[in-house]
């Protein structure tokens, strides 16, 4: 499903004006009487320095525009479709980690300025590309086709020197390392997974209402049983 077909389902065919330039998406959309800024990546983008800067720039523009012209800051919907960070000597030389940190600071500024932040995973959300902006939203939603991972099991087997068969066997019972949006849901890393039959407009509206600006993911991971140590361990340290 193309991202524009997704926007049609979310906002109706006349309800969105989102432009794709290469692998970058930006624009606005209307959900009921609420105006929403849309920023994201498409086509399994490998996020490099220039793409990271376009995302950051779009966030800063949204913050800047709403600081002066809008009575209330508009929500920002991030569309995450990324195969991860770009892998190149050039990007490393220039410090791609610093470009991603800059994007994260822009996301944080938007939150502090009162923008509600939502991520919708469409396609892939992988490793550093997912960390750069998608994972930093107030509420993270995944479309039914979403694939979420750090690394596929074969590569993981090579690095950890644990046999692929053993990893595959454990992947059935443990959400902790195997790819899959469902695993992230159980661990609190994804708030909701939408089904193909859902009314996506309604789900988006509901997600906007549920978005909280405090990071609730460790508590959710505990509640859902997929991440039973994160919240209690952080608590042990916090009260020590």
């Amino acid at each position: 499903m193309s991202e524009h077909a997704v926007f049609d389902r979310l906002f109706g065919t006349a309800g969105h004006n989102v432009i794709s330039e290469g692998q970058f998406l930006h624009g606005s959309a209307q959900l009921g009487n609420e105006s929403i800024t849309v920023i994201g990546t498409r086509d399994h983008a490998a996020i490099d320095g220039p793409l990271a800067l376009r995302i950051a720039d779009a966030i800063l523009q949204a913050v800047s525009a709403d600081a002066t012209t809008h009575p209330a800051p508009r929500p920002i919907l991030f569309i995450a479709d990324t195969q991860g960070q770009a892998l190149s000597r050039h990007d490393e030389l220039l410090g791609l980690n610093g470009y991603f940190a800059h994007v994260a600071r822009c996301v944080d500024l938007a939150r502090r300025q009162g923008h509600r932040l939502l991520t919708l995973i469409h396609g892939e959300a992988v490793s550093g590309g997912f960390l750069a902006f998608g994972m930093l939203a107030d509420r993270i939603c995944a479309l039914p086709d979403a694939q979420v991972r750090v690394m596929d099991l074969r590569a993981m087997a090579r690095v950890t020197k644990i046999s692929f068969e053993r990893l595959e066997e454990l992947a059935d019972v443990s959400p902790v390392f195997a790819p899959g949006a469902e695993n992230y849901w159980r661990m609190g890393g994804i708030h909701e997974i939408w089904s193909a039959d859902d009314n996506w407009s309604e789900r988006l509206a509901a997600a906007l209402v549920s978005a909280t600006e405090t990071d609730d993911r460790a508590a959710i991971g505990l509640e859902r049983g997929g991440r039973q140590l994160a919240a209690p361990t952080a608590q042990l340290v916090a009260v020590a």
């Binding site: 960390l131 750090v150 993981m156 959400p175 195997a178 991440r227």
Partner: peptide
Amino acid sequence: LHEANAGLIA
């Protein structure tokens, strides 16, 4: 990588 999803979220 042994607990990749937990690590990424963390």
